[in-house]
Amino acid sequence: MKSKSILVVEDEKKILEVIQAYLKNEGFDVLIAEDGENALEIINREQVHLVILDLMLPKISGEDVCRKIRTMSDIPIIMLTARAEEDDKIEGLAIGADDYMTKPFSPRELIGRVRALIRRSYREEQPLADFLSYNHGDLEVDVKRMLVKKNGDILNFTPNEFKLLYVFLVNPGQIFTREQLIEKAFGYDYDGFDRTIDTHIKNIRQKIENDPKNPVYILTVYGMGYKFGGGK
């Protein structure tokens, strides 16, 4: 598996060096920033898979860095802070952090949380065939060419419909809320309403299902969201 790139944003040099050493020992590529401004420059310039972000930073605070990241990306973020109050933790998660650790912390525990968050966030990056076929060719998807076929006939898919279908294909059986589908398919800057997802799914079902009212591919999980059933 290709090594993941971790950005460590920390202005305390000793802590930065310890985290960097542990991450490199675990096989991660490590980028470092000692202030919030530099962190945002790196994120705009480099491919970053996870951010370890201290809250007390010069130039731009960790909170503001987190907010800015969330306007452009869903990169996983682990916040580091000396503030251990529950309200601080809740606030950190509310502004977009995925996990939260208080100082002093165990570097081994931090590495464990990094690995767990990487696994959860990048399951969709597992190898995926360029060509997918379901139910003996009833539904076929050419991923590279962004083509969808039903019984050999090419379907007219919009870019947004294909993006949404792709999320389901690479996460078979996983239940997604409307909000999660928006984030994964269209990104955080999407300006549509979450109910727009229902319209997209209705349109996709009209195209790929034999009976759209009794779907076998994109299934509704009542009270939760949608999942891909694989046609079984």
Rank of each mutant, 00 (worst) to 15 (best):
R205Y: 02
F168L: 03
L169G: 06
K150H: 13
I182Q: 07
E179Y: 13
K202T: 07
I197K: 02
I154C: 10
G192Y: 10
F176L: 13
F162S: 09
I182K: 05
K202H: 06
D153H: 12
G152T: 14
F168T: 00
T199P: 00
T196L: 12
Y166E: 07
V170R: 01
Y217W: 01
N214F: 02
F157M: 15
E209W: 01
G152P: 13
A185P: 11
F176W: 11
N210M: 08
V167W: 02
M224S: 15
Y188V: 15
D153Y: 09
R195I: 12
N214H: 07
G187L: 14
G187F: 09
Y188I: 14
K202S: 07
D194S: 12
K163T: 00
K150V: 04
N210I: 02
I175P: 04
P212T: 11
G223L: 10
F162N: 09
Q174P: 00
R178I: 01
L164H: 07
V216F: 05
P172I: 02
I154N: 11
R205G: 04
G173F: 05
T220E: 06
R178P: 05
E179V: 12
L219S: 01
Y166H: 14
Q174V: 09
D194V: 04
T196S: 15
K184P: 05
G225C: 01
V148M: 07
I218M: 08
G223D: 13
R195M: 11
N214D: 10
L164A: 10
G223N: 09
F186I: 11
P172D: 08
R195C: 08
N203V: 04
K150G: 04
Y222P: 02
K202L: 04
R178C: 01
V170P: 00
Y190N: 14
N210K: 09
I197D: 03
L181E: 12
I218F: 06
G192V: 11
Y190T: 10
T158I: 08
Q180L: 12
F168K: 03
V167P: 01
Y190D: 15
L164S: 07
F162R: 11
N210D: 14
N171H: 14
I175M: 12
L155W: 06
T196W: 10
M224T: 09
A185T: 11
T220W: 00
N171Q: 11
I208G: 01
D189F: 15
F168Y: 02
K207Q: 06
I208A: 04
Y222T: 09
K149T: 13
Y217L: 02
D194F: 06
Q206D: 14
N156F: 07
K207E: 02
H200V: 10
G223Y: 10
F186Q: 15
K213D: 08
T177F: 10
